[in-house]
């Protein structure tokens, strides 16, 4: 038995012309298979068409607003991160570019810088040594010096230092006035 085009038509019954509909009905009276298929589809179609729309829980719009706000916040954070990352990348790029360009210019100064560096290191080491020696001397002599000298000696040194500073200032002032 020939089933084409009836197998197609039985799913499209509403769009058939009157001749096609009549041909289909004739076929369905003689073909059990197509009739069963047609009945099954009619049942299914009725069920689908009677099925109602399912609605979300109340507050859907409010939840959408929250989601939008969250999305905006995350987008802003992503943009900030992208800007920071790009800036950092640019700085590293510039440092690399200019570093390689400027390094030859500093090449002759490197030995001088190294000499000065060692001098500074020596000075710091000497100062440290001087402080240690003075500490040892004071520790050793503090008990053998009488109390009167321990008080009067720093006072005298302080007075002499003051006198020295004042004298230098006065000489400088007079010289300026003469000029």
């Amino acid at each position: 038995m020939k089933h084409q085009p009836y197998e197609f038509w039985l799913f499209e019954r509403k769009t058939l012309s009157s001749d096609e509909a009549r041909d289909l009905e004739d076929h369905l009276t003689t073909c059990d298979n197509c009739r069963a298929l047609a009945n099954a589809w009619t049942n299914i179609e009725d069920q689908i068409l009677s099925a109602s729309l399912v609605a979300p829980l109340p507050g859907f719009t409010q939840r959408w607003r929250s989601r939008l706000a969250d999305h905006r916040r995350r987008t802003h954070q992503r943009q900030m991160s992208a800007v920071l990352f790009t800036t950092a990348l640019g700085l590293v790029g510039l440092a690399f570019l200019f570093g390689t360009e400027l390094l030859p210019l500093f090449q002759p100064a490197i030995p001088t810088l190294m000499v000065w560096g060692s001098k500074v290191a020596n000075l710091v080491a000497n100062l440290h040594l001087f402080r240690m020696i003075m500490g040892i001397l004071l520790d050793a002599s503090i008990d053998s010096i009488p109390l009167v000298y321990r008080v009067s000696l720093p006072l005298s040194l302080a007075g002499l230092a003051t006198l020295w500073v004042v004298s230098i200032n006065r000489f400088r002032y007079r010289r300026i006035r003469k000029e």
Binding site: H3, F11, D32, N33, R35, A36, W41, I44
Partner: peptide, 21 residues
């Protein structure tokens, strides 16, 4: 077609041998 066939299977619709495609 799939829906109709599955419906027939689930509802155990018998199809006559003479009408089998």
């Amino acid at each position: 077609r799939y829906l109709a066939e599955q419906w027939m299977v689930r509802k155990s619709v018998a199809v006559g041998a003479s009408g089998r495609c």
